[in-house]
């Protein structure tokens, strides 16, 4: 088996494509070790997407597991002409969108107010070092803003900023058209811009320092 590959956002996927395809071919024949290599290679990418979409660590872990299981069970549907990572993120994002919609329906049916982004960010679990970093002020504000977006918009924003995906790649991942993605991104940015106005719950002096810090 080849050496482990960690495929982080921004990595040149073309360079590792042949190894990935080799693992996919073996996994299709039932080789679980080959699929484990795929899991190790893409777990960070899938987990980050799920975490950003769902805003909660435990649920993100569960969604990541579910995404990989679905990928394994439907591996024969993967078109090798496409990027495996895009296909995998497509499964994960659709699954997260479904979860968010079910979550919303559950809240509505219980007739309870929607929890704020801060409520979602708070977890009773002990934070890992990575999570401690994430809970920096900027990370918390970004997550708070993301939580304000509808699931479809949130997916487009995460793929754009965290994965540096083009309109075409986002459209392919979310199985829609480029114009729909452009529209979602624009509306998402407008919504986020409204949240950043002085009347927003985020203190303006902190926001200014964060924006200047970039």
């Amino acid at each position: 088996m080849s050496a482990l590959l960690i495929v982080l956002p921004g990595a040149n996927v073309a360079e590792v494509d042949s190894t990935i395809l080799e693992w996919v071919a073996l996994a299709r024949q039932g080789d679980q070790d080959a699929f484990a290599e795929l899991v190790y290679s893409f777990q960070d990418a899938v987990y980050n997407l799920c975490y950003r979409m769902l805003g909660e660590r435990t649920e993100a872990e569960d969604a990541t597991q579910e995404a990989f299981l679905r990928a394994y069970l439907h591996l024969n549907r993967y078109d090798t002409a496409r990027s495996f990572k895009t296909w995998l993120l497509s499964i994960a994002s659709n699954h997260c969108i479904d979860r968010l919609r079910k979550r919303r329906m559950k809240w509505m049916s219980l007739d309870e107010p929607l929890p704020s982004g801060n409520a979602l960010a708070i977890s009773s679990d002990e934070p890992t070092p990575e999570e401690a970093t994430l809970k920096s002020e900027r990370g918390a504000i970004i997550q708070h803003l993301l939580d304000e977006l509808p699931p479809d918009y949130r997916a487009a924003v995460v793929l754009r900023y965290w994965y540096d995906y083009s309109y075409t790649e986002i459209a392919e991942t979310l199985e829609t058209t480029e114009s729909a993605i452009k529209s979602r991104l624009f509306r998402a940015r407008q919504t986020l811009a409204d949240k950043l106005r002085p009347s927003s719950p985020i203190p303006s002096d902190r926001m200014t320092s964060l924006l200047e810090g970039n």
């Binding site: 982080l8 960070d44 872990e61 299981l69 504000i141 965290w162 924006l211 970039n214």
Partner: peptide, 21 residues
């Protein structure tokens, strides 16, 4: 918004996640 969202922090998967999967 664009500047705030650029180069955002990346969440790494927990160590045990792959084994659980």
């Amino acid at each position: 918004v664009d500047r705030l969202m650029s180069n955002p922090p990346f969440a790494r998967a927990p160590q045990r996640l792959a084994a659980t999967i």
